[in-house]
Amino acid sequence: MTVAPTVSSDERISKVGLARRLLIRPELGAVVGLIAVFVFFAAQSPVFRSPAGIANWLDPAATLGIMAVAIALLMIGGEFDLSAGVLTGTTGLILVTLATRYGFDVWTAMLAGLVVALLIGLANGLIVTRTRLPSFIVTLGTFLMLQGINLGVTKALTGTVQVSGLRRAAGYETARTIFAGTIEIGGTSFRVAILWWVFVTAAATWVLMRSRAGNWIFAVGGNEQAARAVGVPAARTKIALFMTTAVAAWLVGSILALRYTSVQANIGIGQEFIYIIAAVIGGCLLTGGYGSAIGAAIGAVIFGMADKGIVFLGWDADWFKFFLGAMLLLATLANRLVRRYAEEVKH
């Protein structure tokens, strides 16, 4: 073997301008959007830019963000999960029902919820990888089934469409402190969910950028056949992604159940698209193989800001939907340009 001349840098690399390098980052569009939305609301509403205001809009960003990050990983891996939103309801319902009606303490009830979530994730993953059906259809099926179970079982047990009374369960106070408490920073109380969100985002980013699994996730989403040809365990990677999404749904479901001590049987319906939208705004391609966890987290902040900012400005909350659609369109257009750039072949 010849000894490689150790040239640490190629003089032509500098010609790849900083602007082009930044442009190819999946998060770019989201960062621009974040700044624009913040400036828009902060300029008009002093409350929005106050610490209390920030704590206020970071809260919805956190619970949405945990899910958006998990969905982003799944989408980079080339799949969708429409059942993720309803699964937050299912896990919350399991927690409250077991803790209030069957004498479980909160921790055991949460563990039961986690097991169910993992099984549902596993089922989604197995069906998708074994049958090669589009995950859009498979998880649409799971979504509807879970929606039916949530309502049907809750009604059968309680005669109403909600379960409540988690406050009386054993272990509630500790669990609440860890998952649904608040922390004081400079006289403002921030929800502890924000910490979970930061942690999930950091962990997901590490996995994507600095682990073998991350390389496999990009590969199975980019070209599953090619990935399999070089020995990537494509099916296992995808199943793990579905299960990760399910765990995230369990975390969010538990956080919300502990916070409100009751769960509506129809909670989470419609959220699945919000997660996907946040991930897309964060730079994920709908076709897979490209995206970022940080981008999805930023996408979630944009949502949190718009959600609360519209209220701070005293506008009708209906405008939020308009905003959602506009952001989604802009983001997909921006992503398309990035993809074209990345795939353009030089001759």
Partner: peptide, 13 residues
């Protein structure tokens, strides 16, 4: 994988 960098492709798997 077209969207992945050269070095990521090089060591894929």
């Amino acid at each position: 994988i077209p969207l992945m960098s050269v070095w990521r492709n090089f060591f894929l798997g």
